[in-house]
């Protein structure tokens, strides 16, 4: 893994080791928490998935029913009814309201539809009060059609909130998982690597110290030995000199005098 070769750029000291270790503990805890969050989200996510599939199917049903009821209305009330409807739009009486729901720290938008009484007064066919569209013929089919479509809207609004939740959760799960993975695969190994690195480095320092001590020790011993030998030699020389002094003249000097005196020294008096 790419993370293994990486480590933080730190000075390998004992203090740093403590800091990094603390960070590793933090990362592990964070990882566990995020993992839990991700699990919670996934549970929610799966529930939503199931619901979406179910709602999609019921949407097909509702849409079929509503478009068929429109056909019925058109059959009875004449084709012209749709123009009347199209022309008399003013302001929406059926609106949606959005609010948030909190799932494991992720805010999910939820829609709910409601009938706006202000909009209901205008706009011909409205949900608030049955209008007079198709009074002479097909009024019932028109209102049946309206009810069918309101039902379809109900399903669609539910589906919309599910779908939005789906997208938001998907995004949230991805982010969370990315974080989990980042912690697991990058941050934690890096911290661990740093710890091993620091530990190794500290060990090495220790070994170096030891070796140096050893070396110094050896050097010192050698020096002492050398000094000892020197001292011995000196002592021996001392001894020899002592001996010669004891004989009155040093042997060297004696020979020198003898050799020198015999060759060149002519003003010798005795």
């Amino acid at each position: 893994m790419s993370g293994q070769s990486q480590r933080l750029n730190v000075v390998p000291t004992v203090t740093m080791l403590g800091v990094v270790k603390a960070r590793l503990i933090g990362a592990t805890r964070g990882h566990a928490l995020l993992k839990k969050k991700s699990d919670a989200l996934t549970v929610q996510f799966r529930a939503i998935l199931k619901k979406i599939v179910a709602t999609k199917e019921s949407m097909g049903e509702a849409m079929r029913a509503s478009s068929f009821s429109l056909a019925e209305a058109k059959y009875v009330a004449g084709d012209g009814v749709r123009h009347v409807v199209l022309q008399s739009v003013r302001s929406a009486s059926l609106r949606v309201r959005s609010h948030q729901e909190n799932v494991a720290g992720v805010k999910l938008p939820k829609f709910s539809h409601f009938v706006d009484p202000a909009g209901g007064a205008s706009g011909g066919p409205s949900g608030a009060s049955p209008s007079l569209t198709g009074l002479a013929r097909g009024g019932q089919q028109v209102s049946a059609c309206r009810t069918a479509h309101v039902k379809a809207i109900e399903v669609l609004v539910e589906l919309a909130s599910l779908q939005t939740s789906f997208l938001t959760l998907d995004e949230a799960i991805k982010t969370t998982n990315r974080r989990v993975n980042a912690l697991e695969n990058v941050v934690k190994p890096r911290l661990e690597n740093t710890i091993t690195y620091i530990k190794g480095e500290l060990d090495e320092l220790e070994r170096e110290d030891f070796f140096r001590l050893k070396k110094i020790q050896g050097y010192k011993r050698r020096e002492i030995e050398r000094q000892m030998i020197e001292a011995k030699k000196f002592a021996e020389e001392q001894l020899a000199e002592d001996l010669a002094l004891k004989r009155g003249i040093s042997m060297g000097a004696a020979t020198n005098i003898l050799v020198g005196g015999g060759d060149k020294d002519d003003d010798i008096i005795f």
Partner: peptide, 15 residues
């Protein structure tokens, strides 16, 4: 027919 339809369709309206 219109009379009947109008009656039925206006039940429950402001008419």
């Amino acid at each position: 027919r219109r009379a009947v339809n109008i009656t039925i369709n206006s039940i429950g309206t402001e008419l």
